[in-house]
Design a protein around this nucleic acid. Structure first.
Lengths: 343, 343
DNA sequence: CCGTGCCGTTGAATCGTTTCATTAGCACGT
DNA sequence: ACGTGCTAATGAAACGATTCAACGGCACGG
C-alpha cells in the first residue's frame, strides 16, 4: 500500500508524453498545446503528483527560499518583523523559513549551516554575538546576508536597524512639549548599548530645553517588579522633589512605576506625573492608564530587510547599505490627558 | 571573482582522490585512512566546501527536516512550543522549520505545499480551520502529520492537545478549596469551543460542591478592556450580591477585572475576592496582585508532538494516538494570601 | 612463488527535474 | 513535388551527492 513517491516520469507515462513535456506543462504552459496540457494535468491530479523541490533546486542551483534567524520568536518585535518579511517575500515569489536562535550562539551557527546547505537565496540574521567572521565566510562563498536590528561596524553587509538615540530624544521631547521640566530617566546600571543610546537621546533633548533637568535613576533589572521598586522610592519623595515626567528604558519598567505611583501615593497620571516607556509591548495599551511609548517600525524593517536582500541577490555588485529607521512615538493617556479616554 | 559554488568534485580533484572517497570522509570517516582523511579535510577547508542539501536529499529520498505550522508565532504558547519541538528534534538529528499561518487558510495551504515539495520528514500542524481533506491527501501520499492543539475527530492522525474541561475544573476547584462559594465565570457570548469547555469544567466543579453557586457573566470580548467593564459592573453591586471568587476564561479578562475591582471599590484580593485566569500569559505574574492561572504544558506538548511524529516516521504501521494533557494550576497571590509576597 | 583475505579506494549508476538541441508533423507558397 | 517556416513534442545531458560492486595492493601462510 505504501507506494513509492510519484515522479514526473510516472505522470509522463500515464499521460503518454515525454518527461520534458510534463516539465513544460508545469513551467511553461504556453509552450504546450491545450489538449496535451489537459491530459497531463489530469494525470497529475489523478496520481497526486507533487514536485520534488530537491531535484528542482539541484538543477536550478538555487532555491526560492530566504532564511531568517531571530533571537527569540516569542518576542513580538521579531514575530511581527517575521510576518512582514514573509509577506514581502511572498510578493516576490520567495518563501521565508524561520529559525529561532534563542540567543544561543550554537543554535545560531546550526541554523546558518542548515540554511547554507539548503542553498537559500540569502539570509536575514539578527545576530547573537559577533557574527563578523561567520558572515565574512558566507559572503566569500557568495551568500547574500542582511543584518537585522544591528549595524555592521565594518560595513561588510547591509543592515536594517533603529536609531535608539532618536527614540530617547523623541520620548523626552514629548514630555518637554507637555510642559514637564523635572524629568527622570529610569534605566539599569549594567546597561546594554540600546539603553545607553536611549539615555543619550534623553540627555540631548533636555540639554536643548532651557530650565529642564534630567535625573537618572537606576533599576535592578528591566522588569515590572524592578519598576515597582523604583516607583515606590520616587512616590515616597517629598512633594518638592517629585519629578513631573518619567521616561523608562522599557515598557515593563514603566508599568511597574505606574503601579507603584498610583497605589502608593495616588498621584494622577498624567496630570501630576507624565509617564512614557519604550518598545510599545502589547500590554501597554491595556494598562490602567494606557501607556505612551516609542516603537520600532517593525513591519517596515521586515519589508526593508527583504528588499535589501533581494537587491543584493539581483545585483551583487551594488554596494552595501546601512538603513537606520527612526522609531515612532505612540501617544496614549499616560502623557496626554486629551487622549486618556481613547486608550 | 564570483566563482561558481564548490562541489564535491572540486574537493576530490584538489585532494587527488575520487569523489566517492570525499563522500566517505563526510559520511563514513572510519572507512577512510587517516592520511587521506586529513588531505581531504584540508581541501574542504581550503575551498570552503559546503554540502549541497538538495543533491543529498534527492539521492536519499528524504530530508532531516520537520515542518511546523503554527497559528501565530507571536503567541507565547506557540513560540515556546516551537522552541521545545526544536530541541526535541535536534536531539534526534532533525531540524524544525517554522511556518506562520497567521490564522490564514491560504498561508497555511502555501506552507503545506512548500513543505511537501521540500519532502520534509513530516509535519506538525496547528490547523486554522478544517484541514481534514488536506491532511487526508497528505497521508495518502505517505506524509506523516501530527495535529497540535486540536484533536482529529475522525482519528485519521495523531494529535497533541489539552483538556480544557479539566482546566476549568481545576480553576474552580481551586477557588472552592480556598473556601469560596459564590463563584462567577466570566466568558463571552459568541464562544469558542475552548471557552465552552472551560465553563463545562467550572460547572462540574461547582456541582460537586454542596452550597456552591455558579453565575455566568458575559463579556464583549476576551480583552483587558472588556474585563474592566465586567469588573466595573460587578464591583458596583451591593455587598450582599458580591461574588467571593471569579474565574475568567482568559488572563486578559482577569487582569481587566482586577484593575476595575481594585480601583473602583478597593476590594482586597484575595481576601474579599479570589481571582483566577487562564493561559498564564507573561504579564500575569507582574500584575499588581500576581494572577493565579491555568497553563498548558507547552514544552511537554512540543516534545510529545515531535515524538509522535518520529514514531510514525519510523513505523508507519503503528496506530494513531490522541494524546490529551491536563493543564497545570499556577497559584499566585490573587487566590492564595500565603503566596502573595512571593509573586 | 602463489593463493587468500583484507583494507582502502575507485568510478559508474542513481535520484527527479529542467533545459535545449533536435526531430516530427503540418500548412503554405512556389 | 519540394523547400520553408512554424509549432509541438522528444529525449538525452546536466545538476551534486551517495552508494556499492569491483578492483588494486599488501601482508601473510603454505
Amino acid at each position: 500500500m505504501e507506494s513509492r513517491p510519484v515522479s514526473i516520469k510516472d505522470v509522463a507515462d500515464r499521460a503518454g508524453v515525454a518527461v520534458g513535456t510534463v516539465s513544460n506543462v508545469l513551467n511553461h504552459p504556453a509552450r504546450v498545446s491545450s489538449a496535451t496540457r489537459e491530459r497531463v494535468q489530469a494525470a497529475i491530479d489523478h496520481l497526486g503528483f507533487v514536485r520534488n523541490d530537491a531535484a528542482r533546486q539541484l538543477r536550478a542551483g538555487q532555491s526560492r527560499t530566504i532564511g531568517l534567524i531571530v533571537l527569540d520568536v516569542g518576542n513580538p518585535f521579531f514575530s511581527s518583523l517575521a510576518r512582514a518579511a514573509e509577506d514581502c517575500a511572498a510578493e516576490n515569489g520567495s518563501t521565508v523559513v524561520l529559525g529561532d536562535s534563542g540567543q544561543d550562539t550554537e543554535r545560531e551557527a546550526r541554523y546558518i549551516d542548515v540554511f547554507e546547505q539548503q542553498r537559500v537565496q540569502g539570509m536575514l540574521i539578527s545576530p547573537v554575538g559577533d557574527v563578523g567572521p561567520r558572515v565574512e565566510a558566507l559572503r566569500k562563498r557568495g551568500m547574500p546576508v542582511v543584518l537585522v536590528d544591528r549595524v555592521d561596524a565594518q560595513r561588510r553587509c547591509s543592515s536594517v536597524s533603529v536609531d535608539d538615540v532618536a527614540g530617547g530624544y523623541m520620548a523626552v521631547r514629548h514630555l518637554l512639549e507637555a510642559g514637564r521640566r523635572r524629568i527622570v530617566f529610569v534605566g539599569t546600571k549594567a546597561s546594554f548599548r540600546q539603553v545607553d543610546d536611549r539615555l543619550a537621546g534623553a540627555r540631548q533633548a533636555v540639554g536643548e530645553q532651557e530650565g529642564a533637568v534630567l535625573e537618572v535613576v537606576e533599576a535592578d533589572a528591566m522588569t515590572v517588579l524592578a519598576g515597582r521598586d523604583v516607583g515606590g522610592v520616587i512616590a515616597r519623595r517629598p512633594a518638592g522633589r517629585l519629578p513631573d515626567g518619567i521616561f523608562c528604558a522599557n515598557d515593563l519598567l514603566a508599568i511597574g512605576v505606574m503601579q507603584a505611583v498610583l497605589l502608593i501615593r495616588g498621584l494622577r497620571i498624567p496630570e501630576d506625573l507624565a509617564l512614557i516607556g519604550y518598545d510599545d509591548i502589547d500590554f501597554s495599551a491595556s494598562a490602567v492608564v494606557p501607556l505612551s511609548s516609542v516603537r520600532k517600525p517593525t513591519e517596515l524593517m521586515g519589508r526593508t530587510a527583504v528588499e535589501l536582500l533581494l537587491e543584493e541577490i539581483e545585483g551583487p555588485s551594488s554596494r552595501r547599505r546601512q538603513v537606520i529607521f527612526d522609531p515612532e512615538l505612540v501617544e496614549r493617556g499616560s502623557t496626554t490627558a486629551a487622549v486618556r479616554a481613547a486608550g
